[in-house]
């Protein structure tokens, strides 16, 4: 479980986050949604320690992230996996080398054991036989899956995904969503996803945090969205006239 308390962040004069407090649950897919510039990526980067907040706390279970010693922070980071928007794979390394990197850095496994582990995670993301390919030889969806494989290779307890479906066709996006959901449930990990994709919200949104103007505008789950009367979430999710009509029809309004 991850708890954030009163997170504030500004860049110069521009205030991006204004006192965000929330909880991201274990074994659930926790989604951060909001319009562009709402502060989603900044919040995600604060969660993983890439940005330091001006104020507030981030708790990983019973550990306050920003008060950890260097050694403790390093140990905690080994439990964190992150999927970046573009995959963030080394271009000059092949798939196996990319996935093996965290194992090389943090484990004392033998080369054979590492290769076995790489094969295992590639099987998990349904991408066997691509070990020797380079990122440039893979499609966007495949690169994302390699990114997921690298993120889970150390058996993380916390998984972060920054816009995992951006640039993907709807069918591949569903495959990626399902994969993240499976991993979250199978390994019982805390997953936090920053997304724009409304399909993802309605498919895997166990816990949804809507940010607006740097504040939490709404929090709930995918089922609550359909029945919610809150105009902020309704306007955001059912933004197009078509979806508005569809919602009214579904609710018999």
């Amino acid at each position: 479980m991850i708890k954030i308390k009163d997170i504030e962040k500004s860049f110069g004069e521009k205030v991006v986050l204004k006192g965000i407090t929330s909880t991201f649950h274990r074994g659930k897919t926790n989604l951060i949604i909001g319009r562009s510039g709402a502060g989603k990526t900044v919040l995600l980067k604060i969660l993983v320690g890439l940005f330091q907040p001006n104020k507030g706390e981030v708790w990983y279970d019973d550990q306050s992230f920003f008060q950890l010693s260097k050694k403790e922070a390093r140990q905690l980071r080994m439990k964190i996996g992150m999927l970046f928007q573009g995959g963030a794979l080394f271009d000059s390394w092949n798939v196996e080398e990319n996935i093996r990197f965290p194992l090389d850095m943090y484990t004392e496994m033998s080369y054979t054991e590492k290769r076995e582990r790489v094969k295992e995670v590639l099987k998990k993301v349904e991408l066997t036989g691509v070990e020797n390919k380079y990122p440039s030889e893979l499609s966007g969806g495949m690169q994302k899956r390699v990114g997921i494989a690298r993120a889970i290779v150390l058996n993380p307890q916390y998984l972060f995904c920054d816009e995992p479906n951006s640039g993907l066709d709807p069918k591949t996006a569903i495959v990626i969503d399902q994969l993240i959901l499976d991993i979250t449930q199978q390994y019982d990990i805390t997953t936090v996803i920053n997304t724009h994709d409304m399909n993802s919200v309605m498919e895997i949104g166990d816990n949804i945090l809507l940010l607006k103007d740097g504040c939490v505008a709404w929090q709930g789950n995918k089922d609550e969205i359909l029945t919610s009367e809150d105009p902020t979430i309704i306007e955001f999710i059912f933004a197009s006239p078509f979806l508005k009509r569809l919602r009214k029809k579904a609710l018999g309004l």
Binding site: F84, Q85, F90, D91, Y106
Partner: peptide, 17 residues
């Protein structure tokens, strides 16, 4: 620079490298 822009450096930072 390309690694910085493609978030590869961020990815390594998250890993604690």
């Amino acid at each position: 620079g390309g690694m910085r822009q493609k978030e590869i450096i961020d990815a390594m930072d998250v890993m604690g490298v």
